[in-house]
Design a protein around this nucleic acid. Structure first.
Length: 201
DNA sequence: GAGTAGATCCTCT
DNA sequence: GAGGATCTACTCA
């Protein structure tokens, strides 16, 4: 297991980084032990020109400030008053690119995830959907701005790779308000994986 | 299996 | 004061 280098996150093409993040392992290690999962679904948010992005038009607020930092940090925020959503900030300072992690395939610390989510048995809903991912890994808004190379939170490469045939793209979910940009195929997911959110195809 | 409503609170205008 | 990068449970068929 090798932590991804900062250069990985600081490239200019957010779609290329998204594709490369597929199959990598997201790890948290706080309050209860290590929990980790393989990234099997995500969405790219391409900064100021992207209507669906929180940073559309170069908007800068206290909430989205970390999106403007150098790549390689976490951006966590609360949605619908209930769900914590975890993003990876990419590109360089002042270019607010981000990638939303939508689903994982659980690897380590499943008992801890069950405890956090209040479930008895592991099932497909444990880490399906961005709200559940954060819940299972214990990610909260206080973790926004965290480095992705810290001891408590990081993304690693364990050598596993999905082939191009296994990865599909689609429009992003829940961004109908973004007009034309809602149709962009910026969502990546693993074909046939039971943890992918939305309707099975 | 498909469709819909309700939860619930922070952030921005 | 309004609305949101969502999830779950419940209804009806």
């Amino acid at each position: 297991m090798k932590k991804l280098a900062l250069d990985f996150y600081r490239r200019e093409n957010v779609l290329e980084i998204s594709r490369d993040l597929m199959g990598k392992v997201l790890v948290t290690n706080w309050g209860g032990g290590i929990t980790s999962g393989r990234i099997i679904e995500l969405e790219a948010y391409a900064g100021a020109p992207d209507r669906a992005s929180h940073a559309f038009g170069g908007k800068l607020t206290d909430r989205n400030r970390v999106m403007y930092m150098d790549g390689g940090v976490a951006y966590v925020y609360l949605c619908y008053g209930i769900h914590h959503l975890f993003n990876v900030v990419t590109h360089r300072k002042n270019t607010p690119h981000a990638i939303l992690i939508r689903a994982l395939e659980p690897l380590n610390g499943i008992p801890v995830m069950l405890e956090r989510t209040g479930k008895e048995e592991p099932d497909n809903s444990l880490t399906r959907g961005p709200g559940n991912v954060s819940k299972a890994l214990g990610i909260h808004t206080i973790h926004t701005g965290f480095s992705l190379r810290s001891k408590e939170l990081f993304i690693a490469d364990d050598g596993y790779q999905y082939s191009n045939k296994e990865i599909l793209t689609s429009p992003r979910i829940g961004v109908d308000y973004a007009g034309k940009d809602a149709l962009l195929p910026f969502r990546y997911y693993v074909k046939g994986n039971a943890f992918v959110s939305g309707k099975p195809k």
